[in-house]
Amino acid sequence: MSARLSNAQMAWRAAQDIADGAYVNLGIGLPEMVARFQPPGREAIFHTENGILGFGEAPPEGAEDWDLINAGKKAVTEKPGTAFFHHADSFAMVRGGHLDVAILGAYEVAETGDLANWSTGPKGVPAVGGAMDLVHGAKRVAVLTDHVTRDGKPKLVKRCSLPLTGVACVTRVYTSLAVVDIEGGRFILREKLPTLGVDELQARTGAELVLPDGIGDLVAPEL
């Protein structure tokens, strides 16, 4: 029995919450993987900041069209019904509240719903991309991330220590160990790995987990 969900399993879990017909933006990196695990019978339309709605998966190597890329600058494909548009229209879709879900990565998420995912501090080159727009646009902003950093530090914290991407914007966090909702400035534990004790999970979390009645088992198929 594994001690954590794999990246694919985390992405699979997030995909289960995407309704049929939803317009969805997936952040660069791990969140992009969510598109692979759409439940059968549901059709989500994926949006990318650089001006495509309804793109398909990556083409085979050698068949890339470099005018057809996603926000992570990876090659994607057209599908019947794909639409292209310029950047102002793209962010009108974002800021205008037309997206149903945005799933983003995170350095830190606070129990207040604050998100930090664009800057690791004054060293290095800051790069924000579309993250600050996305957190204020989509009807639902979720985060997909490991529960802890590589050094084992909590990523779910009381207050973010890194520069913020947005204030009070995240409502659900899918991690390698749990599914946590953010409501009223608190982390509410919804699901956890069945093999993991609540105390153990709390020890790896930087703020109090509120325990409602009926915490679900976080189980994903082998992927």
Binding site: E49, H86, H87, A88, S90, F91, V94, R95, P126, A127, V128, G129, G130, A131, M132, D133, H136, G137
Partner: peptide
């Protein structure tokens, strides 16, 4: 450094004769 949607809208506003606008971003 400018958030991407703000960058796009600032450019659009420049072209559209709108000197300033408000965004939640």
């Amino acid at each position: 450094l400018v958030p991407q949607g703000t960058l796009a809208e600032r450019i659009r506003a420049g072209g559209a004769g709108i000197p300033a606008f408000y965004t939640p971003t």
